[in-house]
């Protein structure tokens, strides 16, 4: 059934309408009708992937659409890595791959064959927390706790990036090594959203943990 005449839809209007184009894509495809689908459903392709997570080797046969995030959360049941948006917008899924931080929702598990992955569970556990985890507890660098594993993984990697001399957008002088300053930390941590708004405490925690390391 077409939309009512007093509310016409044009291609231009729909494109401008952004997500509403989804509505009309469906409207414009009435022919799919009640007939059975023409092609038989195929089982989804799978692939084998071998990687190391927190020092343990894993060999998984995965639907190739599986993200690294879902491989960790759903297949290995390492649910410390969080799914906040599944679109690389929030940073809750941050893990360390070969020492570098990535959004695990933005890469497929099969891209990580042979990689060494560290998740929040691999940094430390209750009774044996990583200094960064300890610092977050002491400085109350979290509230609901959902972005926290991503913040902590990111923070650990940030200190390593600064130590390695990697500059950021706010590094004023590229000829000298960047330092652990609140300004550098705020810039480098900005891919990790905390809606509870613990930012001020998180920066305090990272500064503290950086001192512990030094």
């Amino acid at each position: 059934m077409a939309p009512s005449d007093d509310f016409p839809i044009s291609r231009r209007g729909l494109l401008a309408g952004g997500a509403a184009s989804v509505a009309t894509a469906a409207v414009a495809r009435p022919a799919m009708a009640e007939a059975a689908p023409s092609r038989a459903p195929a089982s989804p392709p799978t692939a084998k992937v071998d990687f190391e997570v927190n020092g343990t080797a894993h060999s998984l046969e995965l639907d190739t659409r599986t993200t690294l995030l879902d491989a960790l959360r759903e297949h290995l049941r390492l649910t410390g890595t969080k799914k906040g948006c599944d679109h690389g917008q929030c940073g809750a899924c941050t893990v360390l791959v070969d020492g570098r931080r990535i959004n695990s929702c933005l890469s497929l598990a099969v891209q990580h064959d042979g990689d060494r992955i560290t998740t929040i569970e691999g940094l430390g556990q209750p009774g044996n927390l990583h200094p960064m985890q300890e610092a977050f507890v002491v400085h109350d660098g979290y509230q609901c706790g959902y972005c926290t594993p991503g913040q902590i993984c990111s923070a650990v990697a940030v200190l390593d990036e600064i130590k390695a001399g990697i500059p950021s957008h706010v590094t004023a002088d590229l000829s000298v090594a960047p330092a652990v300053t609140p300004r550098e930390l705020r810039e480098r941590m900005s891919g990790n959203i905390c809606r509870c708004g613990a930012y001020s405490n998180i920066v305090d925690a990272i500064v503290d943990a950086a001192g512990v390391k030094a």
């Binding site: 890595t81 929040i120 569970e121 927390l129 507890v137 109350d140 926290t148 594993p149």
Partner: peptide, 13 residues
Amino acid sequence: SRIEGPLKTSGTA
């Protein structure tokens, strides 16, 4: 400090 802090910061909450 929050008593559940070690759970939240280690991803075990």
